[in-house]
């Protein structure tokens, strides 16, 4: 197993008290595998990624528990110095907004080359040649000339390619892409995702794709982990999850996607708001918004049950719902508020 996150907990000290951003997240990523981490803003998906990368702002952030095993080592036990040599070389991150993630006063060639200077101790000249090679790899036309350009001289899609090239520079084993296509328009999104997927196959890397876009996930991911209020609420192979979700929250998300055959009808929305991280409801954190909620949901935190029975079940499926079987069997596990007949 390439990466194993076990019971990770992260808190932030805020003015309104302690915000529990991540409350016991478990997930694994294998080499060559794409795990999509899905969730709303504030569900803890980015914070988990930052904790894995070791770029959490401490303080106010604080990792209060769990372990992050990367190729067998617990990253949380490494010294900052060792941690830094892992970052970039063995795991890399692609950020959401490529324009703001590239240094505006350095040419892209300098920034790409920096990877080789920092980690490999190359000369600037060799590093530049490597930068051109990388830009070719991510299919930037006329790389030899454009290597001297500044980030603002590139289009959005091109900039994201450069970010991808930077992340790929040292051929890491794991890439975390934090909403890599959110800032791009739809046609460019597809190109960038295809490129990322292709390079991942080529290098046999593990990829954690953080997104809130279910459409992006369907094409590239192998497995999905759905997060809510800092917990994984459901995990499943991507097609199983789309076919039959085993958690009412996932069901709600899927039903919220606009669809052509729903033309003219009101779009479904999950009722209520995500909970404040400073006051996560007791029991199942989704219960105030859940159409299936029973008394037990208000008191008992559901563990991640293995989904081993019922239709579309299988190994590797899990759901943090006390009534996952009902949800799995009854495709309308969202109660009376539903607008479908």
């Amino acid at each position: 197993m390439l990466l194993e996150v076990r019971d990770l907990r992260v808190e932030f000290a805020t003015r309104d008290g302690v915000a529990q951003a991540v409350n016991g997240v478990d997930y694994t990523v294998d080499a060559g595998e794409t795990l999509a981490v899905l969730g709303e803003s504030g569900s803890g998906k980015s914070v988990t990624a930052q904790a894995i990368m070791g770029i959490l702002d401490v303080p106010p952030g604080r990792i209060t528990g769990g372990e992050i095993l990367f190729k067998g080592r617990d990253l949380l036990k490494l010294k900052e110095e060792q941690r830094r040599s892992v970052r970039g070389a063995e795991m890399a991150m692609i950020f959401q907004d490529a324009l703001s993630s590239l240094n505006p006063v350095l040419t892209v060639g300098d920034q790409l080359g920096e990877m080789f200077v920092v980690h490999r101790g190359m000369s600037r000249k060799d590093a530049r040649a490597k930068a051109v090679e990388l830009m070719d790899r991510v299919r930037i036309p006329a790389a030899g000339q454009r290597v001297r350009d500044y980030p603002h001289q590139f289009s959005g899609g091109m900039r994201q390619r450069i970010m991808i090239a930077m992340a790929l520079a040292l051929e890491p084993d794991l890439i975390i892409a934090d909403e890599p296509t959110t800032a791009l328009d739809v046609t460019v999104q597809a190109q960038v995702m295809d490129l990322l997927a292709e390079l991942q196959r080529e290098y046999d890397m593990g990829l954690i794709l953080i997104t809130h876009d279910l459409g992006v996930v369907a094409d590239v991911a192998d497995r999905i982990a759905v997060m809510y209020a800092g917990r994984i609420v459901e995990t499943a192979p991507v097609h199983d999850l789309y076919k039959a979700p085993a958690h009412p929250y996932t069901r709600g998300l899927l039903d919220s996607i606009p669809r052509l055959d729903h033309k003219g009808r009101e779009l479904y929305a999950i009722k209520g708001l995500p909970p404040s991280l400073t006051a996560i409801p007791p029991g199942c954190p989704f219960h105030p918004r859940c159409p299936m909620a029973q008394d037990v949901c208000r008191t008992d935190v559901p563990p991640l049950y293995a989904v081993d029975r019922g239709p579309v079940s299988g190994p590797g499926r899990g759901s943090a719902c006390h009534f996952w079987l009902d949800c799995l069997e009854d495709s309308a596990c969202r109660g009376p508020a539903s607008d479908t007949p």
Binding site: R84, M93, S101
Partner: peptide, 13 residues
């Protein structure tokens, strides 16, 4: 700025 965070994520000291 994000690029400082990005540089950190890519291993800059």
């Amino acid at each position: 700025h994000d690029y400082v965070q990005a540089a950190r994520a890519l291993g800059a000291s």
